Simulated scan of single mutants.
Amino acid sequence: MIERTLTITNRAGIHARPAALIAKVANRYVSDVFFLKDAMKINGKSIMGVITLGATYKSKLTMQCDGPDEAEMADAIEHVFANHFEE
């Protein structure tokens, strides 16, 4: 399992468009991905799950990837966050 801490760097936080992008990238892989914030743990392949995190600007999330292609998945999702969700 790979675990990384990600920071929301776009001012709008995670709303519908970034959530859809995160889920789209996550669903390209076989591995499972979960995001943890406060007491919540959600499936990163679910758009609604990602939205329910309520992640705002400068929020920190823990990403956990587990499976055969976990490293590639973690790198791809981290890239989406680093690019401010392509906004």
Rank of each mutant, 00 (worst) to 15 (best):
M48N: 08
V50R: 02
F35C: 00
M63E: 02
R4Y: 13
T52E: 14
S46V: 03
G13S: 10
C65W: 05
T9D: 10
Y57L: 09
N27M: 06
K24W: 11
E78V: 01
S59P: 00
S46I: 06
E70Q: 11
N83H: 11
D66S: 12
E78H: 08
S59I: 02
F34T: 12
I8N: 05
M40K: 15
T7V: 14
A16D: 08
I8W: 00
I77N: 01
A55T: 02
T56V: 04
T7C: 06
N83L: 01
M73I: 04
A82H: 09
A39I: 14
L53H: 07
V50L: 04
L21M: 11
K58N: 12
R28Q: 13
A16F: 04
L36Y: 15
D66A: 11
M40G: 10
L6N: 02
R28T: 07
A26I: 00
H15E: 05
A26V: 03
F34Y: 13
A12S: 13
G44V: 07
D32A: 08
G67R: 10
L53S: 11
I22P: 00
R11G: 10
K60R: 13
N27F: 05
G49C: 13
A19I: 04
H84W: 07
I8G: 02
N83V: 05
I77G: 03
T7G: 00
D38W: 01
L53Y: 07
A76Q: 05
M1Q: 05
N10H: 10
F81K: 08
V33P: 07
T52K: 08
A19Q: 07
N43C: 07
L61R: 13
A82T: 03
D66M: 09
A71V: 13
L21W: 04
L6Y: 03
L61F: 06
K41Y: 04
A76Y: 06
I51K: 05
H84E: 12
I47P: 08
A19K: 11
L6M: 03
K45N: 02
N43I: 10
F85Q: 06
N83R: 04
N10A: 07
T62P: 01
E72D: 14
D38N: 15
G54A: 04
G67M: 00
E87K: 14
I42H: 08
A71C: 10
H15M: 04
T62V: 11
A82V: 00
A71H: 02
T5K: 13
V33N: 07
A74E: 11
F85H: 04
L61W: 09
L36N: 12
K41R: 15
T56W: 14
N43A: 13
L21Y: 06
G54K: 02
T7H: 00
G13L: 12
